[in-house]
Design a protein around this nucleic acid. Structure first.
Length: 208
DNA sequence: ACGGGGATTTTCT
DNA sequence: GAAAATCCCCGTG
């Protein structure tokens, strides 16, 4: 997957990353799987984007060329993004969930869980399982020999789009994408207990 | 130096 | 469903 793939607008990249493979070579072993959930963060008109208040020390890699990794710490964990658009533009795609495929045993050990659904079904879980931390920040995924992003399944006809998870600002933007029906998508328990959207009506719930 | 918030996860009731 | 755990980062003083 070349740089031109990532140089497009983040919503398109987020949608088309679904079904692609993401792998990180950690201690000589390739870890990763199929991407099944993503979120786009826009350079313009998106106060939830970390680049919204300009370039700082912690978010500098967001302004690097497309295909750069932006890894940031939060709540004693890490989240991994793929930077989009041209250098100098602060936009990216957050990888929220992966279907585990390669190095499953090692990833389960890294996460200290035995349930496969609790290995990479959340942005913090992904980094923990795949051995991703600040050391991976600002790496170029199109050149690094311990990273691999490549095409895989065709899932374009099974993509669902909703508002993003856990963001307080710009909550109306529907920039979360996931593979419909995939059991490794995050927050599935919550979706079940949430009030039925068709009862609330289309104007009340932005996720529809 | 200090304090609060955050693109989270886990556990308990 | 609610709240704790946990820590880095930036904005103030």
């Amino acid at each position: 997957m070349g740089r031109s793939f990532f140089r497009r607008d983040p919503a398109t990249v987020a949608r088309e990353l679904l079904g692609c493979a993401m792998l990180h070579c950690c201690d000589g072993e390739w870890l990763g799987g199929w991407i099944v959930e993503t979120e786009a963060y826009l350079a313009e008109g998106d106060p939830a984007c970390h680049a919204a208040r300009g370039r700082g020390r912690s978010n500098a890699s967001m302004f690097e060329p497309a295909g750069t990794l932006y890894v940031y710490p939060i709540h004693a964990k890490h989240c991994v993004n793929l930077v989009t658009e041209n250098a100098g533009v602060g936009s990216a795609v957050l990888i929220r969930a992966i279907e585990p495929v390669w190095g499953i045993d090692a990833m389960m050990q890294n996460r200290n869980v035995s349930d496969l659904r609790r290995v990479t079904s959340g942005p913090g879980m992904i980094c923990s399982a795949m051995g991703i931390d600040r050391a991976s920040d600002a790496m170029d995924v199109t050149r690094a020999d311990d990273w691999l992003l490549t095409g895989g399944h065709q899932v374009a006809d099974r993509v669902t789009q909703t508002p993003r998870i856990g963001v307080s600002r710009a909550a109306d933007l529907r920039l979360r994408f996931f593979v419909d029906g995939n059991r490794f998508v995050s927050g599935l328990a919550r979706e079940h207990t949430r009030p039925r959207r068709d009862v609330l009506g289309p104007d009340k719930d932005p996720s529809r």
